[in-house]
Computed example of a mutant assay.
Amino acid sequence: MLRRLALTAVVTLTAVSAIAPAASASGQVPSALPTSGPLSAAQPAPGPLPVPLPALPSFLKGGGSGGSEKPAARTRLTVTVERSGVAGADGTFELTCGPTGGTHPERQAACDRLAEVGATRAGRDLFRAAPEGTMCTMIYGGDAYARIVGTWEGRSVDTTVTRGDGCEIARWNNLVPVLPDLR
């Protein structure tokens, strides 16, 4: 806090000295600082150089209305589903969130689910397979297979999900509607 106050004081003094230069020997304040040529004793020295400011966060850089550029999606996934047994559910679909888009059949619901899970503790393990040695029930949920590749909330994703045991069925169900509901 003290360092910030000291920096504020330096910036304030710099701005004041640049706006109101000292009076010359004749008592007159020069109307402008010299723009070229060497400095001499008769010319007042220009004020200190401006202090560089840190870069603005991206949300402050003209991201409001009137900007022609769309922000890059923080979530961009390619979802491939095979052998689901649900009409229209198999195939390869693109999903982008923030803004919502792509060819995914339930893109808004999928983005909402990813945002909901991402804000929880479970979000850290959303795309992670069960750790080696985890005890999973030996329930077979069918031949369905999915692969999800891309970025989620800026993090790299490359995972496969099946329905080969209780852990995988739970993972699949946790990813509905990113993956089709097979319950």
Rank of each mutant, 00 (worst) to 15 (best):
P46T: 06
V117D: 06
V161S: 02
A23S: 11
G62N: 15
P57G: 07
M135H: 10
G164K: 10
P46M: 04
K61Y: 10
L39E: 14
P48M: 12
P48W: 10
G164S: 15
A6D: 12
A122G: 05
D143F: 09
A55T: 15
A146Q: 02
P30T: 06
T162A: 04
T12H: 07
P48R: 08
T75V: 09
A32S: 15
P180Y: 01
D112C: 05
E153T: 04
G118F: 05
D143Q: 15
T160P: 03
T8Y: 11
D90E: 11
C136S: 09
P30I: 10
D165F: 00
T78D: 08
Q108A: 15
T35F: 05
R171N: 04
G133W: 07
P54E: 10
A115N: 08
T103I: 06
L39P: 04
E132Q: 10
A110I: 03
S65M: 15
A73F: 03
G47H: 03
D112A: 12
P50W: 07
P54T: 06
S156P: 08
R107V: 05
V10I: 12
N173F: 02
P38D: 10
R121F: 14
R107A: 13
M138Y: 03
T12C: 11
G62T: 10
A9G: 15
L56D: 14
R83N: 12
L77F: 02
T120C: 15
G154L: 07
V79P: 00
Q43M: 14
A146G: 01
T12A: 15
R183D: 15
Y145Q: 13
S156I: 12
S156H: 12
V117N: 03
E94R: 12
M138W: 05
P52E: 09
S17Y: 00
R121L: 15
A25V: 10
C97F: 00
V117S: 03
G85K: 07
V161I: 11
P99C: 09
V86M: 11
N174V: 10
R124F: 11
V16N: 00
T159Q: 06
T120G: 15
A18V: 02
H104P: 00
R121D: 14
G118D: 13
G142K: 01
S65I: 12
A119M: 11
T103Y: 07
A122L: 09
A109D: 08
R74Q: 14
A42L: 13
M1G: 13
E94M: 04
R4T: 12
T162R: 05
L77Q: 00
S17A: 09
C97G: 00
